[in-house]
Computed example of a mutant assay.
Amino acid sequence: MQVENRSKRETRIFRVSEENFDTILDEAAEIIRKGGTVAFPTETVYGLGADGLNPDAVLKIFEAKERPPGNPLSLLVHSREDIRKVAKNIPEKAVRLMDAFWPGPLTIVLEKNDIVPEITSGNLPSIGLRMPDHRIPLELVKRAGTPLAAPSANLSGKPSPSLAIHVLADLAGRIDAVIDGGGTAIGLESTVIDMTVEPPVVLRLGAVGIDDLEKVIGKVSRPMGTETKAGESLPEKQAGQKYSHYTPDTMVVLVEGEKEEKVSEKIGTLFEDYLSKGQKVGLLLSDETAGFFTAEGLSAHKCFLLGSRKEPEEAAKRLFEGLRALDAEGLDVILADGSFSLSGLGTALLSRLREASSVRYIV
């Protein structure tokens, strides 16, 4: 499959409210039925949707995102009937996960039915399915009458969008419409678990953690690269991730470790080193690490605060916004703080920071 950019088009912007909700969703659903592309918020990140059962419509997603051919997409569904339409041989454990976590931030990989086009599944015999916990995509799937192929609404490889302005920065003129529904609640993509193998394999971490999954279905295989002990090797890619993700144009240097003070000290040392070489440095920090710098030092340089180390959920919500904001500043390097608590979304947050980084230090 050869992916080429089509001519620029006007991207409509729908700002949704209770008063215009039905009108906007009907218009967006009509765009989907006609084979178009619509970006919209979910509880995780903004997605770029098209009719997942229409190969020509799905091709437009690849074109708009400049997504590598063969990189599989997942489908958003509205009901259990949608699931039976596109998947088969659904294991009992998968049903238990649906009961426990749907609607919600969990993508479940199942054997696909023949109705799912090869372009959607990346020529694989399986397909990822998710029922989002957000009114807009659920209604859009329902009104369009088809499962939606819906990867994140960004240029391929770039940080995912948590705001409509992020979508427009990447995809204005490339897609038909954006539904602006405000910021996303979680800010990181869904957890992905492959249920076509035993034990099931977690392909990507998100808001549903390993412990959450194992309480429902027992043992699962963990993704590579989730260890955080000093001195352990960090693989270049997690299991199931064929292509780079979350990567700004600016080089990101990540500092992580078990002792928060050492992380702060290392970031401070690197900061001074880069400045001494005449480079422009940005800082992506926890509130606590920011306290290591003087107020004058922070104000003199580009700094984006993610929040407290003890509140990784808030940091996760702001991560992609921070990467995008700093990436737009014409910097030479972004120093990123990897000292956030590994409770809640902390492990998923760290995995995204690792993906975004070109250089990593463990202290």
Rank of each mutant, 00 (worst) to 15 (best):
Val58Phe: 03
Ile32Tyr: 04
Gly49Tyr: 05
Ile83Cys: 01
Gly346Phe: 00
Pro72Lys: 02
Glu232Pro: 06
Lys215Asp: 14
Asn71Gly: 01
Glu118Pro: 03
Glu111Asn: 15
Lys112Trp: 07
Asp176Lys: 02
Leu97Tyr: 04
Val197Tyr: 04
Asp212Ile: 06
Pro200Glu: 08
Lys85Val: 12
Leu76Tyr: 08
Ile24Arg: 04
Ser156Ile: 03
Glu81Gly: 08
Arg143His: 05
Gly104Thr: 11
Arg80Glu: 15
Leu298His: 09
Gly338Lys: 04
Lys215Glu: 15
Ile108Thr: 10
Gly307His: 11
Ala239Ser: 13
Leu155His: 11
Arg354Gly: 00
Arg135Tyr: 09
Asn154Phe: 02
Ser299Met: 13
Lys229Thr: 12
Pro72Cys: 02
Pro223Glu: 06
Tyr274Ile: 00
Ile90Cys: 02
Glu139Ile: 06
Asp337Gln: 08
Asp99Gln: 10
Phe304Ala: 10
Leu97Ala: 01
Gly346Thr: 05
Ala177Val: 11
Val201Gly: 03
Ser162Asp: 10
Leu140Ile: 07
Gly268Tyr: 12
Glu92Arg: 10
Val255Pro: 01
Ala39Gln: 03
Ala29Leu: 08
Leu163Met: 13
Thr226Ala: 06
Pro223Gln: 06
Ala348Ile: 06
Pro248Tyr: 09
Phe292Glu: 12
Arg96Glu: 14
Asp211Tyr: 08
Ala315Ile: 14
Glu111Gln: 13
Ser162Asn: 14
Val38Thr: 05
Thr42Ala: 05
Asp332Leu: 02
Val45Lys: 03
Lys8Phe: 12
Pro161Trp: 00
Arg9Glu: 13
Leu283Phe: 06
Leu205Ile: 10
Arg204His: 04
Val95Ile: 15
Glu227Phe: 07
Pro147Ser: 06
Glu66Pro: 01
Asn54Pro: 01
Gly240Glu: 07
Glu66Ser: 15
Ser74Met: 15
Pro235Glu: 10
Ser156Asp: 04
Gly47Ala: 14
Ile179Thr: 04
Glu227Val: 09
Glu311Thr: 15
Leu345Gly: 00
Glu81Tyr: 11
Ser299Leu: 13
Leu148Asn: 00
Ser286Tyr: 06
Leu205Thr: 14
Leu110Asp: 05
Lys158Ser: 11
Pro223Arg: 01
Ile31Thr: 11
Gly278Thr: 01
Arg360Cys: 09
Lys142Ser: 14
Asp82Glu: 07
Leu270Lys: 00
Leu171Phe: 08
Arg309Phe: 13
Ala64Gly: 07
His134Gly: 00
Tyr361Ala: 04
Glu236His: 14
Glu261Lys: 14
Glu66Trp: 06
Ile90Gln: 02
Arg9Tyr: 09
Val263Cys: 07
Gly157His: 07
Ala185Asp: 15
Ala164Trp: 03
Cys303Thr: 15
Asp327His: 13
Leu342Val: 13
Ala144Leu: 02
Ile32Gly: 00
Leu73Tyr: 01
Glu321Asn: 14
Ser358Ala: 14
Pro68Phe: 10
Ser233Pro: 11
Ala29Tyr: 11
Glu214Trp: 09
Gly257Leu: 03
Ala295Tyr: 11
Lys142Arg: 15
Val77Ala: 06
Asp337Leu: 07
Ala94Asn: 02
Pro223Gly: 03
Gly70Ser: 05
Asp176Ser: 05
Tyr46Thr: 08
Ser341Ile: 10
Ser190Glu: 10
Thr37Pro: 08
Phe320Ser: 02
Val281Leu: 00
Ala316Leu: 09
Glu66Lys: 15
Ser221Ala: 13
